Simulated assay, not measured.
Amino acid sequence: MPRQSDNRDRILGTAYQLFYERGFSRISMDAVAARAGITKRTLYNHFDSKDRLFGEMLKRQSTLAVARIKTWATQQGGSAEDFVATIFERLAAWSAKKRWEGSGFTRLALELADLPGHPGRTAARRHKAMIERVFADELRRRGLKRPEEAARALQILTEGATILTLIHGDSAYVGTAAEAARAVLKGN
């Protein structure tokens, strides 16, 4: 018999796959239960609503993603300019992948744009703020005088490049954002 935490982990993992593949509005609790191989009753014992499941799923994914980003960021050597250049190099490589769909957090939060208090929007907002803090910490560590300001600009530029690359199917937006980031660092 599976433990409660095993079911919960399986539900959250399954929900992430489904929501990432098809979006929030196109996935039902029935679909999550079926894909996870559990009953709807078991699903509702863990999560009383699709909204709560969605918010908890994003919190879990954020914890995993931010840990990966922190690990990657702290392993990067060099100056603030080198760090920022590497971010955009990685974004360019990521966006060049076949069937690239951009950031799941951004796509899913935009789907809920008219629901500002939704648990998914709250989780996405926290996630993006944590990434901005990682950027600020790394820029501070590399001697930048105003790391929070630069991190905010970096967040705007990476998100903007991601969204516009996704919309237009043109990764040149990543290069343009990288140039703008270099200018931000020079002014800092």
Rank of each mutant, 00 (worst) to 15 (best):
D9M: 06
P147R: 13
T86G: 12
V84M: 15
E159L: 15
R140N: 00
G13F: 02
A180G: 02
S28F: 15
K50G: 05
L154S: 07
I11V: 06
S171F: 00
S95V: 04
A80D: 14
L164W: 13
I27K: 03
T71P: 00
G160D: 09
I38W: 00
Q76F: 09
A73W: 07
S103R: 10
L164T: 15
T86W: 04
R8V: 14
F54G: 11
A109N: 00
K145Q: 04
D6P: 06
L110S: 09
R107Q: 09
K40N: 10
A80Q: 12
S79M: 11
L110T: 04
L144V: 13
F135W: 13
I38H: 00
R26T: 09
G78A: 11
D82H: 14
V134Y: 00
P116I: 02
W72D: 10
I167V: 13
V32W: 07
T165N: 09
E149H: 02
V66H: 04
A161W: 07
A31D: 11
K50V: 11
D170F: 01
R99N: 14
S49T: 15
A177Y: 02
T14R: 08
S171V: 09
S5E: 15
H127C: 14
V32G: 11
E149C: 01
A109C: 04
R22Y: 04
E111Y: 07
G169K: 11
T86K: 12
M57I: 02
S49P: 04
R133H: 05
L157S: 10
F24H: 15
G77T: 04
F83H: 11
A180D: 08
G117C: 00
T74V: 10
R121L: 01
Y173L: 03
Y173I: 03
F47C: 12
S171H: 07
D137C: 14
E81G: 14
Y173A: 07
